[in-house]
Design a protein around this nucleic acid. Structure first.
Length: 932
RNA sequence: GCCCUCUUGGUGGAAUGGUAGACACAGCAGACUUAAAAUCUGCAGACUUCGGUCGUGCUGGUUCAAGUCCGGCAGAGGGUACCA
């Protein structure tokens, strides 16, 4: 293949599209369609071909939709704030602003190489103050809103103040209840602060000393940071939190309305971890302990209360303070006191345990060793007496009693009196030994048992049914420089205020020491070093926000000195709402205009029609973005309850990685392949070959610019799409690309000859129409590999096209291979226009009024062409095909039987007589099935 | 441990419960060529006594009919965890 010719074709096509501004998307009469890739982070090493999978997929879809008459919103910006960008800057000893700009420029050039049809006027970076102004603005909305549990939505904090001032409502456990309050002014303010969707809290955070910052639960994996894999420890700190748990139910339930892959939905549900259970109060002399259980029917089997090492009651228990250690080397499980069983008044021992987590439930459990395996093991270890309350099954009893001294008929009695003699806990639901304890007199089903136990406990006023979530509130502060500053200031009494809307954005101070303080106790965030920036003059406005004053502003009588919040936001902040900004990227007055929002948003549940990106963000970005969107929805800034309607996860790209004898990976640039072996070019050493995920770690990432340069953009695109279904992971393999080169050469030759010959008819017109129908359907469902296969098949089956039919073929090829398709179309146009007489048979509209191929309407097929008069009808004998008959589509059953009895191939199997004779029809005959 | 996904020729992969292996790569044979490359035309799941037989990880079931639906098992990948 002539590389220069291909590159010329590419350049010509790009110039043409630029000339006609093909990818500008302005609000118009056309129906809108939003297609979106996951927000990319512009990394220092840039993209590899694995990343292109999703980008090519969306580009194909965008081009297809435009050809179908949609106005497509398709753009790409950059998620450039955050830890990785900052770490990269530190490593390369440059300011993050510089590295970020360089990285964005590099990535833009890579995207340019792929020739994606983005509307570049809608691109932006989260680090642009014009963008993060609105990220901060959303934060002020979160700060000035609360979740009204009665209406189940976010409402303005001023409404809450009004409600509390009316005295008709009070607050209990962060819930608004209809009950008279006698709060003082200060108590009302305090209650309001505790209800905000963005609030300050003293929390035990995941502190990462090597990164010098805290991390959210979602960013920590196996006690290590997701970024960098550094050790993470627990440390109490005052931090900004976002009340995502209020949305637990909606985040969980609305998942079912989305067109998302099942596994992502499952992962989100698991992460949210909604669980119905019961809260029961066990009083102690130092105050109540609340426990959470899902098995309230075992409450009479409690042997001890298990609490976490961080449980607050430990602080009140004098002399037990020293038990508050987290050193796991020692055995720290200790008896720390007694609680009263609320139903029996028995004294129940309280133990600190390693297995109860403060972060889940109430940090305390009622331990029922007979019916919970961990409790069982703990009780055995510490010699705690326990009893059983549920009848174990016979099979289980035999299985779990190893002694020979008890006849099997007496095992249940033994279980009743001495459950500790068995090997494990019976943790399945079963009938109770003493149902009368719950005032159960008659037989009720196991299902009703728990429900009844809850009612009993509620009636006794010792507990109640609650819903518990694994999901925690979102820790939103980072002790780093490279993030959005919080739009928050504190007065001298340390009261927090949000910055007035007119004073946004709060920009990051420039040009100073941005490096975090590492490995130091009580280190302040880097912004503390920005002494000029740190404090600001301001006035408290009527709505409670603070208007900040410039150095140039004259002295104001009511002004005070405020200190700025020194933490910054995590990189998830900017990516939580970027998809909305694409709809109205230049708007400085509003986050997005109502007109833009209404025009671009989908008519479905989610604003964005199609969202394409990897499964690695299943619980991070996708959960956070949904939460912000729900708040925006409640406050009336968006009209769809969800952000993303359809979600597609492209598969991963793996590739061979090469390591030397020491086990170090060698960059693929430095590898030469020969006879199935790999050699290092610089040293000549023979290398080991092993597969791995494409990327930095294995040094096996291939720059898409290089692939496009070698093979041409279109050939590369088709090859990548033809490899496998889009959702499937695949290993990078270049040898099959030959097939695509042959395909292109064949098309090029065929169309060129058709232009010269100007055929009056097309060979296999039926196949063409079948393919139009098939390809349309396959692209619609992103089955690009089969769409391409059918185009190849069509090309193989047709030698001669009319000009008009050849254009139909080129159109179908266009979403996959836009440059060569455009080139073929332009060639046809030029030829026709140079000899109008010769081509007088061709519809002039096809070449006179259309500038670019994309402006032609997507080809339609003729339904009549697809109707077949005869079909192939297989004849099965005992499930095996014995003959295939060519029959008329309207053939009668009698006629089929006649044909079958004339078939020697069939009749030689049915000599012994027929048991069953079936002719299966679905609109037309499908199969004949004979059983002998 | 629990949850999810996957398992089809030498390879990547096709198959609304209805002819398994579309399409492509690699391979083989032939044509063209001094030769090679490129191109074109064929052949191609395995076994076979050439009649057929067996074939979608293994195993059982539903069905006239199962790669496809249901149960069990094994292997690979991903997620998650002292979650009460």
């Amino acid at each position: 293949m002539d590389k220069n010719k291909i590159h010329q074709i590419e350049q010509d096509a790009k110039n043409l599209w630029n000339k006609y501004d093909l990818y500008k998307s302005e609000i118009s009469e056309k129906p809108s369609y939003c297609i979106l890739d996951f927000f990319p982070y512009p990394s220092g090493i840039g993209l590899h071909v694995g990343h292109t999978l999703g980008y090519i997929a969306t580009d194909i879809f965008a081009r297809f939709r435009r050809m179908q008459g949609n106005n497509v919103l398709y753009a790409m910006g950059f998620d450039a704030f955050g830890l990785p960008a900052e770490q990269f800057a530190i490593q390369t000893n440059q300011h993050p602003e510089v590295t970020t700009d360089n990285n964005i420029r590099n990535m833009k050039s890579q995207l340019e190489a792929l020739s994606l049809s983005h509307d570049n006027d809608r691109s932006f970076s989260t680090t642009d103050p014009k963008y993060y102004k609105w990220t901060q603005w959303i934060f002020t909305k979160l700060y000035n809103s609360y979740f009204n549990n009665i209406s189940q939505k976010a409402e303005a904090i001023d409404d809450l103040r009004e409600k509390l001032n009316s005295r008709k409502f009070s607050i209990q456990d962060n819930q608004l209840i209809e009950s008279v309050n006698h709060y003082t002014e200060a108590e009302i303010t305090e209650a309001i602060n505790e209800m905000r969707l963005a609030y300050l809290d003293d929390v035990n955070v995941n502190w990462c000393p090597m990164l010098g910052t805290v991390l959210s639960n979602e960013e920590v994996k196996d006690g290590k940071s997701e970024r960098g894999n550094y050790l993470v420890e627990k440390r109490p700190m005052k931090q900004w939190m976002l009340r995502i748990t209020s949305y637990g139910d909606r985040l969980n339930d609305q998942l079912d309305k989305l067109d998302w892959p099942d596994n992502i939905i499952t992962m989100q549900k698991n992460w949210i971890g909604r669980q119905e259970g019961t809260k029961i109060i066990f009083p102690t002399e130092h105050g109540d302990i609340e426990i959470f259980t899902t098995r309230p029917e075992t409450v009479f089997g409690v042997a001890y209360i298990g609490i976490s090492h961080q449980h607050p009651i430990l602080e009140k228990t004098e002399g037990l303070e020293k038990n508050r250690v987290t050193d796991s080397d020692e055995n720290t499980e200790k008896l720390v006191g007694y609680a009263t069983h609320p139903l029996t008044n028995e004294q129940i021992p309280i133990w600190t345990t390693d297995y109860v987590l403060q972060e889940y439930g109430t940090g305390a459990v009622m331990s029922v060793p007979a019916h919970d395996q961990r409790d069982f093991e703990f009780a055995k270890k510490h010699n705690i007496q326990f009893k059983s309350v549920i009848k174990a099954t016979y099979a289980w009893l035999i299985e779990n009693y190893k002694g020979n001294d008890v006849p099997s008929s007496q095992l249940l009695d033994l279980w009743k009196t001495n459950p500790e003699k068995f090997d494990s806990a019976f943790d399945i639901k079963g009938p109770l030994f003493y149902p009368m304890q719950f005032e159960i007199t008659e037989n009720i089903s196991l299902k009703k048992q728990i429900k009844h136990a809850i009612e009993f406990i509620e009636k006794a006023k010792v507990g109640k049914q609650i819903t518990n979530y694994r999901l925690r509130d979102w820790l939103f502060s980072r002790q780093r420089y490279w993030g959005e500053p919080f739009p928050i200031v504190f007065d001298v009494q340390n009261n927090a205020y949000s910055i007035h809307e007119d004073c946004l954005p709060v920009t990051l101070p420039k040009q100073y020491d941005f490096k975090p303080v590492l490995n130091q106790e009580n280190a302040e965030p880097p912004l503390a070093k920005a002494t000029d920036w740190k404090t600001v003059r301001g006035i408290v406005m009527e709505n409670g926000s603070v208007k900040t004053l410039d150095d140039n502003d004259p002295k104001h009588p009511g002004e005070q000195i405020f200190t700025r919040e020194l933490n910054t936001m995590p990189n998830w902040a900017g990516s939580c709402w970027y998809y909305l900004r694409y709809m109205d990227p230049k708007n400085d007055n509003e986050i997005l205009s109502d007109t833009a929002m209404k025009y671009w948003s989908s008519d479905n549940v989610g604003s964005i029609d199609m969202y394409v990106g990897g499964a690695e963000h299943a619980v991070l970005h996708l959960l956070y973005a949904r939460f912000w969107h729900m708040v925006m929805f409640d406050l009336g800034y968006v009209s769809n309850p969800e952000p993303f309607n359809k979600l597609v996860n492209p598969g991963m790209m793996t590739a061979d990685a090469y390591s030397d004898s020491r086990g170090f990976y060698v960059d693929i640039e430095d590898v030469k392949l020969q006879d199935n072996s790999a050699f290092q070019i610089s040293t000549g050493e023979k290398l080991n070959i092993e597969p791995g995920k494409m990327g930095k770690r294995y040094k096996n990432g291939l720059d898409p610019r290089k692939a496009c340069d070698m093979y041409g953009i279109d050939i590369f695109r088709m090859h990548v799409m033809y490899m496998a279904p889009i959702t499937q992971s695949r290993s990078w393999d270049i040898k099959n690309i030959k097939g695509m080169e042959r395909f292109y050469r064949s098309i090029d030759a065929k169309i060129s000859s058709c232009i010269v010959e100007n055929h009056k008819s097309t060979d296999n017109i039926v196949q063409l129409h079948k393919t139009i129908k098939f390809v349309t359907d396959e692209i619609e469902n992103m089955r690009y590999n089969t769409a391409l296969a059918s185009l190849i098949k069509l090309n193989n089956s047709i030698e001669k096209y009319t000009i008009e039919d050849s254009i139909k073929f080129i159109q179908m090829l266009y979403p996959f291979a836009p440059h060569i398709s455009e080139n073929l179309y332009q060639t046809i146009k030029t030829n026709i226009q140079s000899d109008i007489e010769k081509y007088s048979n061709v519809n002039q509209d096809l070449y006179n009024t259309i500038n670019c191929l994309e402006s032609l309407a997507w080809p339609s097929y003729d339904e009549k062409m697809l109707q077949e008069n005869t079909i192939k009808l297989p004849v099965n004998v005992n499930g095996k095909v014995r003959d295939i008959l060519e029959v008329d589509i309207n053939i009668t059953d009698d006629k089929i039987k006649e044909l079958v009895s004339n078939s020697e191939k069939v009749m030689k199997y049915v000599v012994s007589g027929i048991k069953k004779y079936m002719i299966i029809r679905k609109d037309k005959p499908v199969i004949v099935s004979i059983i002998i």
